[in-house]
Amino acid sequence: MKKLIVACFLTVMMASAHATPEQDRLALRAFFQERFPKLDLNEMINGLYAFDEGAREQWLEMEDFPPYEIAIEEGEEAFNKPFANGKTYADCFANGGMGVKQDFPYFDVGTGEIITMEYAINKCRTDNDEEPLPWLVGELAQIAAYMAYTSRGNKMNVVIPDDPRALAAYEAGKEYYYTRRGQLEFACENCHMQSAGMMLRADRLSGMLGQATHWPVYRSKWGEIGTIQKRFQECNSQVRAKPYEAQSQEYRQLEYFLSYMSNGMELNGPASRR
């Protein structure tokens, strides 16, 4: 009898370990469709506004004069300004950096690293003998806003190549998302799946699907445009975990997994949020 229990347990473990990223993504969509039967899942690229008609109306009014507009303009200017060696950001990216955000983050076969768009922007700088920019807000976020803007309407298309290191990075990001952490012991999942659409104080919680489509974001709370990894740090602090450094391996793996889950959804960044 004892043997049988162990055998069953092993089967369950192997079944879960063998779910492919695509199975995960489809299961996640099914999870949200079951929780919100009437919701068009593609609406979830609008975060909490997919769940809250009142807040959505206010938000749409704000979108008439979007608070991220200046960031796009400043980002465009910075993007086009040549480095000291005469090269530009456009030289570092496919298609001159226009309409490419759907491909980020990607797995770099040469180095085995996960490359987010912000990571690639700073790598472009250092490869051209420029100082890297601060990760969270300011010029880097503005450039990312401009690049996101040129990618609007494209569908998220994160690829996990047939390479055990890429799959391991995806799995690490997935484990991070579902693992409780911090003194308050919340996993990302507790708020953004189990409780998506509910109120935490005066704020409605967004759902995990579409969470990666609209960055960078101008948050009223921040009063400026910031990157997705700024939000990771903020979430960590809110559950009283010590945040990792921006673009740490942990956060890049998380962004890889999170972005894959939004595959097939329309890019709509930059965006504004409360």
Binding site: S195, M198, M199, L200, R201, A202, L205
Partner: peptide, 16 residues
């Protein structure tokens, strides 16, 4: 507690 629970006398209570 009010972040997640309605309690009489509390303002801006959550429903988590």
């Amino acid at each position: 507690c009010l972040a997640c629970h309605w309690i009489e006398g509390g303002e801006l209570t959550g429903n988590y």
